[in-house]
C-alpha cells in the first residue's frame, strides 16, 4: 500500500491523504489533467465518472457525472483555483443538478493536490477542506450511501456467481 498517511483534522475541517506513487510528477499530472485518464479512477467501479468538460486553467472548470448501477446519474462540478504544472492543482468540488447546474444547497469542498518529486517517483498530497462541520457530515453521510451501494453490488456479484 502506497498511502503513507491519512490525517483528519476536525478543527481545521481537513482530511489529508499522502501517497507515494511510482511515477514522475509529469505522469501523475496527466491522470489529473487528461479527462480520459481521470474518469478511470475518480469514480468507484460501481459509479464510474464521465467528464463532459475539463478546462484545466485558473478560472476554468470541469463538469462530470457518475453513473450508478441502475443508470441513475450524480452530477458534479469543479472550479480550478490554482494550476501550476506539474506540481499544484487546487479546485472547488461541488454537486450539480440533473442539468449540470451547481447546486448551492449541496456541500462544496476545496481540494489541494500537491505533487513533489521523490527518489522513487512522486509524493502526492491531497488536502480536502470542508466549509463547515455540517458540510463535512453531510458529505460523509453521502459517502456512506455510496459505500453501502458498492458493498451491496459486491454481494450481488458474489451471489450471481453461485
Amino acid at each position: 500500500m502506497t498511502v503513507v498517511s491519512m490525517t483528519r483534522d476536525p478543527d481545521a475541517l481537513t482530511l489529508t491523504v499522502v501517497a507515494e506513487l511510482a511515477a514522475p510528477p509529469s505522469r501523475v499530472w496527466q491522470v489529473w489533467a487528461d479527462p480520459r485518464r481521470l474518469e478511470r479512477w475518480w469514480g468507484p467501479p460501481t459509479w464510474p465518472a464521465t467528464f463532459v468538460a475539463h478546462d484545466l486553467r485558473v478560472g476554468g472548470g470541469a463538469a462530470y457525472y457518475m453513473t450508478g448501477p441502475d443508470g441513475e446519474k450524480a452530477n458534479g462540478w469543479w472550479r480550478f483555483i490554482a494550476v501550476e504544472e506539474p506540481r499544484l492543482i487546487e479546485f472547488e468540488d461541488g454537486f450539480a443538478d440533473d442539468a449540470g447546474v451547481p447546486d448551492p444547497a449541496m456541500p462544496t469542498t476545496r481540494a489541494r493536490v500537491e505533487l513533489a518529486e521523490t527518489a522513487g517517483g512522486t509524493r502526492m498530497t491531497v488536502t480536502s477542506r470542508f466549509a463547515s462541520t455540517e458540510q463535512m457530515e453531510q458529505l460523509v453521510a453521502m459517502g456512506m450511501e455510496e459505500g453501502l451501494r458498492a458493498a451491496m453490488a459486491q454481494i450481488d456479484g458474489v451471489l450471481a456467481e453461485g
Binding site: 491523504v17 468507484p44 459517502g143 459505500g147
Partner: peptide
C-alpha cells in the same frame, strides 16, 4: 468511509 473513497 470518506477515507476509503480516497484509498480506493
Amino acid at each position: 468511509q470518506y477515507e476509503e473513497i480516497w484509498l480506493d
